[in-house]
Design a protein around this nucleic acid. Structure first.
Lengths: 244, 244
DNA sequence: CAATTTAAGATCGTATACAATTTTTGAGCA
DNA sequence: TGCTCAAAAATTGTATACGATCTTAAATTG
């Protein structure tokens, strides 16, 4: 079984959020575990997610694993090929563009709404979020820091108190994490912190217009930080191993 | 078994589209059948969708029916309550507002993109779509006409050639169908045709700005055509039966 | 007679079993 | 050695079975 294996049972750590609205029972747990594992880049794009393997790791039957994988497939984090199984999704360059275009369309108005709905309690929550991100970065836990920088955007949508848009943002954020894993070209991951602090200032001032503009330029900046030139296609397993 | 039952096996008619990206095998068929049935208002909001019952109707096992119901739950057309089963979703007033706010945010820019990408072939397709809608309306098939007026919006997103946004629009359109079933207050359903023809004119002129504005006002108009006052809560089974 | 309790029935959540398909392995041959 | 083809192994798709939970109905009791 010399094959890329899912993470060991150490997948602990508090889940960022209850996730999507559908599954019942233990399906949700597995869904959450896989979700956070993907967001923290512990599961690389393209990895096979065997039903038996995942089930054995989490002590669950294939039935519930299947439901979890189908849920993740629906949110774009997993690709299911008929009779071949589930894989961690590998967004194409085109999809990467589309995801960030959609984010540039949706998130700035959401930030404006959030600024208008912002309370002191909300501000404290966001502040704690940034602190946690900073702490993770300082502790060298890159994956966790990246996941937190993503959920910061989700938190904004939740403050805007728009459940429908929040679900969309959450999905786009998750897919962005995969896209960054594949196409990020800058070495500096801390550049995001800067924009997030700028957003905080706009929120503290309850300046919706400023929040909208900062968010817009932040997302455009993220988009431009990707290397989305057409490149070699899918030498995932063999060439990668033989590269050195 | 005196209970609201799903439609009989006559659920034929060409599906509007391949639907969502996830399920495999016969799951997709059942998903599509239920989806179109909901869009055509043959399945009323709140109806119970028993796994056994649906499975018997379509000649499938509970396994695949479950997968289909979970997929529909993820797209917001079905609500699953733990240990109680699946029901056709019954959007709240708040959700209705949010869905149309999201549509007002997303669809106008999509219409602008579509106008820019519009070819003669695309125009012919939209024209055929409107004709089919008109024919269904003339034939008295209200449900089908309504479903077609919804897929007209989806078709626009597809022409814009944005798969990520198209998936979002498709989901919003589907949920709008449920919302209209619950909250529509006007008697005139043909009012939409007017806006759709205005859109066609903008598309023919390749006038992106006009398309965006027409679409915006169209969606605001739809939103205002809903009766979203707080009203009596859920007297679905008893009071409804005793009303006359 | 109405309200409460209890038991029967129905439905869902999960595990397991079998069939269908794909992938891998290895033998045979040019 | 390299290629083709066939058989075995592994994996998924679907059906069925059983335990848990909820719903419904009956029976009991004040």
């Amino acid at each position: 079984m010399a094959r890329p294996t899912p993470p060991a049972g150490d997948a602990s750590g508090p889940a960022p959020h209850p996730l999507f609205p559908l599954p019942a029972g233990r399906t949700l747990d597995i869904c959450t575990e896989l979700h956070t594992a993907i967001l923290e880049h512990r599961l690389a794009p393209g990895m096979k997610l065997s039903e038996d393997e995942v089930g054995e790791i989490y002590g669950a039957s294939r039935t519930v694993v299947r439901a979890a994988l189908q849920a993740l497939a629906h949110s774009g984090l997993v690709t299911i090929e008929k009779n071949r199984g589930a894989f961690v999704a590998k967004p194409t360059i085109r999809e990467a563009h589309e995801v960030f275009q959609a984010r540039a369309l949706i998130e700035p108005p959401v930030a404006r709404m959030a600024a208008q709905a912002m309370t002191e309690s909300h501000l404290a929550g966001l502040k704690a979020h940034l602190d946690a991100e900073h702490a993770a970065l300082h502790a060298g836990d890159m994956g966790r820091a990246l996941a937190l920088s993503g959920t910061f955007h989700t938190a904004i949508a939740e403050i805007a108190d728009q459940q429908v848009l929040t679900a969309m943002v959450r999905s786009l954020i998750s897919r962005s994490s995969l896209i960054i894993a594949l196409y990020w070209k800058r070495a500096d991951t801390a550049c995001e912190s800067h924009s997030h602090h700028a957003l905080m200032k706009a929120f503290q001032a309850r300046d919706g217009k400023a929040a909208e503009e900062v968010q817009k330029s932040h997302i455009v900046d993220l988009h431009s930080g990707l290397n989305l030139r057409a490149q070699e296609e899918a030498p995932t397993s063999l060439a990668t191993a033989l590269k050195r």
